[in-house]
């Protein structure tokens, strides 16, 4: 499933770039995320974090454990975000490039990537997968916008 979109942050690109690389901010903004623990750099040079997430949309709930990796840093214009998680209801891997483009006083954060899911959620959630992915991304950026606002 391809995903793409953009969000306006009221911060200059360099700040926007920094906060989206900040594990504390990422952990706060990822819906249902408990924490991100740095597990160091992977062999291919990615900064990697261990994560635990409790996803909940309406009655649907799932615990996911996995990793968040930040790769291909190109400060302040882009980096690659790789999120992998798995739990009893399935597993997901999302990979996308975040691009930071100056837009007036703020930054236009664009994302483009692909999400693959497996397990029960892939087999029975087809009808709501796309809309749910968008919902989660919307929530994430909503919180990032909030976090950015606090930092202004």
């Amino acid at each position: 499933m391809k995903i793409s979109g953009s969000y306006e942050l009221a911060l200059p690109p360099a700040r926007a770039y920094t906060i989206l690389q900040d594990p504390a901010i990422l952990a706060r903004c990822m819906p249902g995320c408990d924490h991100l623990n740095r597990i160091g750099e992977t062999e291919d040079g990615h900064v990697a974090y261990e994560m635990k997430m409790k996803m909940a949309i309406s009655s649907v709930q799932g615990l996911f454990a996995g990793t968040v990796k930040l790769a291909d840093p190109n400060e302040p214009s882009s980096f690659r975000l790789i999120v992998e998680g798995s739990g009893k209801i399935g597993f997901m891997k999302g990979e996308g490039v975040l691009t930071f483009v100056e837009s007036g006083a703020g930054t236009d954060v664009r994302y483009e990537g692909e999400v693959n899911v497996g397990g029960v959620i892939a087999g029975v959630g087809q009808r709501l997968l796309d809309v749910t992915a968008k919902h989660i991304i919307k929530k994430f950026f909503g919180k990032v916008v909030g976090a950015a606002g606090e930092m202004e």
Partner: peptide, 14 residues
Amino acid sequence: YDDTGQLITGELMD
């Protein structure tokens, strides 16, 4: 089946 081999019509809802 999707490209990764997941049966995406895995229930009577789809």
